[in-house]
């Protein structure tokens, strides 16, 4: 067993590049999904019913599709519609689009739990449209939803493992390549698990510092 981990250690550069790719995928897609989710949230809360209907359709649709299937559709399905992405682009697009729906839904929930008066005060003091959303509505949402957003980032990190099926060289892909060439499945996969765990710990540390900011304002 020690020997198996020795073999994994000798493949460390492959694992580290997998870890780096997983980190890049997760950070990019979490950031993009959060920003796009912020843009989508007002549509979920809009007065115009057609806008709400369209936004709701997208969000509910995404939330009911297994991510693996969605990644298949983006990589293997879209080319038959004439849209052909390489595996990196496909992976990123799949993670971003899928999680935009989750981020928007998280922010909508936090928005509905906000007291009405501070937002109304924003309107009374001359804030409107984008400025009202950006300066008055959004910051309390982000503080309140911080822990749930952090949770979703952890979900993104784990979902990124599915992208091994479209040959994206991320962490799971690196671990399975090591086990298949060197016949050390347990050591390779456990090492990958430990690295995923490390990533999640970093996210949780970030979440708890947002929690402290929110606590001071509650």
């Amino acid at each position: 067993m020690i020997r198996d981990f020795g073999i994994v250690w000798s493949e460390r550069s492959l694992l580290l590049s997998g870890l780096a790719n997983t980190t890049i995928l997760s950070v990019l897609s979490a950031a993009a999904a959060l920003v796009l989710g912020m843009a989508l949230t007002p549509a979920l809360m809009a007065r115009n019913r057609a806008v709400v209907f369209a936004a709701r359709g997208f969000v509910d649709g995404m939330r009911c599709v297994p991510f693996l299937l969605f990644a298949y559709i983006v990589y293997y399905g879209l080319p038959s519609l004439g849209l052909r992405f390489d595996n990196w682009t496909s992976g990123l697009v799949a993670l971003i689009v899928y999680n935009t729906a989750y981020m928007a839904e998280i922010l909508r929930g936090a928005w509905q739990a906000q007291p009405r008066e501070p937002i109304e005060a924003g309107v009374a003091f001359g804030f409107s449209e984008l400025r009202l959303f950006r300066r008055i509505i959004l910051p309390p949402l982000l503080l309140m939803a911080g822990p749930v957003i952090g949770n979703q980032v952890i979900q993104i990190i784990k979902d990124s493992a599915f992208l091994t099926i479209i040959a994206l060289p991320e962490l799971t892909h690196a671990a399975s390549s090591i086990q298949s060439r060197r016949y050390v499945p347990f050591a390779a996969f456990i090492t990958a698990v430990a690295l995923y765990w490390g990533l999640c710990l970093i996210v949780e540390a970030g979440v708890s510092s947002i929690g402290r900011l929110a606590e001071a304002r509650r």
């Binding site: 007291p115 008066e117 501070p118 109304e120 005060a121 009374a124 003091f125 309390p140």
Partner: peptide
């Protein structure tokens, strides 16, 4: 200017 019953300060 407007002053509200429940203050309506911006919490953040």
């Amino acid at each position: 200017g407007m002053v509200f019953q429940h203050f309506a300060l911006w919490p953040h």
